[in-house]
Design a protein around this nucleic acid. Structure first.
Lengths: 79, 79
DNA sequence: CTGTATTTGTTCGTATGTATT
DNA sequence: AAATACATACGAACAAATACA
């Protein structure tokens, strides 16, 4: 999945992978995406890198984060 | 390897050495070449000189550089 | 959050040799 | 001869982004 030594930063690779899942409707609007810990384990990368990827998705308007609750797919993310 | 007192500038000698490695397929497309620091150590020259050599390779279309990631062999460099 | 490591980007100063004025 | 300009080469320092624990 992730190419650690490629030209593209890991956090951007992950952001693109997650964005594709969202846009394909794999995760429904207003439903939580996997937790940071789950993503760390799935992709074998550092937690900070996962957080950076999620912040990119936030800036793209694909997700929104609720403190102490999780990160959720935006209502119109895959519309 | 490098002839410091020869007629050819050091940065051009290094550019030619690296170009040969790329064209021989020693480094694959989209894979990183050694970092500037590694090249400094391998050839015993100044970092600025290494950077000058790499900029020559960029102008020749052999490599592309991603800030904070490295310098990578161009996709068609050894095609 | 902190701290550390790596890598490229940038700038400054110094020195040398060559060419020009 | 003298001054200027340019290219080459080295060294050092710091910034910023990435990635890890």
């Amino acid at each position: 999945m992730i190419e650690p030594d490629g030209p593209v930063p890991i956090y951007l690779q992950l952001a693109d992978i997650l964005a594709e899942r969202i846009e394909r409707g794999e995760w429904q609007p207003n439903r939580a995406i996997p937790s940071e810990t789950q993503l760390v384990q799935e992709f074998g990368i550092a937690r900070n890198t996962v957080r950076k990827a999620i912040s990119v998705l936030r800036e793209r308007g694909l997700v929104f984060t609720v403190p102490q609750r999780g990160t959720f797919v935006s209502p119109q993310a895959n519309a």
